[in-house]
Design a protein around this nucleic acid. Sequence first.
DNA 1: TTATATACATAAGATTCTGAGGCATGTTTT
DNA 2: AAAACATGCCTCAGAATCTTATGTATATAA
Lengths: 115, 115
Amino acid sequence: MSNNNLIKGSLQTIILKLLEENEKMYGYEITQRVKELTAGEIKITEGALYPALHKLEAEGLLSTEIQQVDNRVRKYYRLTKDGQKEVTSKMSELQGFVENLQRILTPDLKPGFNI
Amino acid sequence: MSNNNLIKGSLQTIILKLLEENEKMYGYEITQRVKELTAGEIKITEGALYPALHKLEAEGLLSTEIQQVDNRVRKYYRLTKDGQKEVTSKMSELQGFVENLQRILTPDLKPGFNI
DNA sequence: TTATATACATAAGATTCTGAGGCATGTTTT
DNA sequence: AAAACATGCCTCAGAATCTTATGTATATAA
C-alpha cells in the first residue's frame, strides 16, 4: 500500500504470469486477483493496468477477445506464442533482480536464503 | 542489465541500507559497491544516484560532509537520526513488497519459501 | 596524448505510475 | 425511489523515477 510505487517495472511480469496460469483473464479480474492474493496490500490501479495491457497487446504478447456477459462487455486477454516465451524471460529477469537486491541489502546472507 | 528499470523505487532503500552498514560513503563509492556486490549486474547510474542523494538530503534523512582527498573533492553522506529510522521502515516496506510479489508470481508456494 | 579511473553535477526525454475523471449496467442499502 | 456500491471499460494531467548525454576537473596508465 504505502509503497505501491515499488511495483514499477514488475506490473508487466505480473500480468504475463497470471495469464500463464489462467489462460485468459479480463482487466477487472486481474485487479481483483492481485488484491486477493496479497490480502489487499497491492492494488493495481486501472490507470496503470489498462495502458499496460494495451502496450503488451501492441507488442504482440497478448491477444484479445470480447465477450458479452450479463449485458456487460468483457475484454479477455490471453498469451500469444511470443507472450509465452516472454513470461519465462521476464520471470528470470525479475528473479535475478530480486537476488541481486538481496545481495545488496543483506550482505551477511548468501544466495538461496529464506526471505 | 537488461532491466535495471526494476530498480524503480528501491534505489532509495539501497542507499539508506548501505549507509546503515558503512556509516559514511560518497556517491562514486556507492556505485562501485553495488557493482561489486552484484557482480556487475546492477549499475547505478550517476544520473539516478545524485538526484536521489540530493533528495534524501533535502528530506533530512542524510547529512553531508565535504572532504579533500588527493586534490579531489569527495562528498560523504551519512544517516541522520531520521534517516536511521527510515532505513527500518523502507526495508520492511521492500520486504513486504517482495513477499507479495512472490505470492502473486508463485501461487504454488507459501510464505517463507526459498528464492 | 589519449584513454581510463576517480569524483562531482545537471538536464532533456522516456517510462511508468497515481489520482481523477468519464461512461454504462446491475445490485444492494438507506 | 434515491443513493451507494460493484462490475467493467477507458483516458489524461501530473508526479516520480529512471536513462543517456553532457559538462567540469584531476590523476594515472597505455
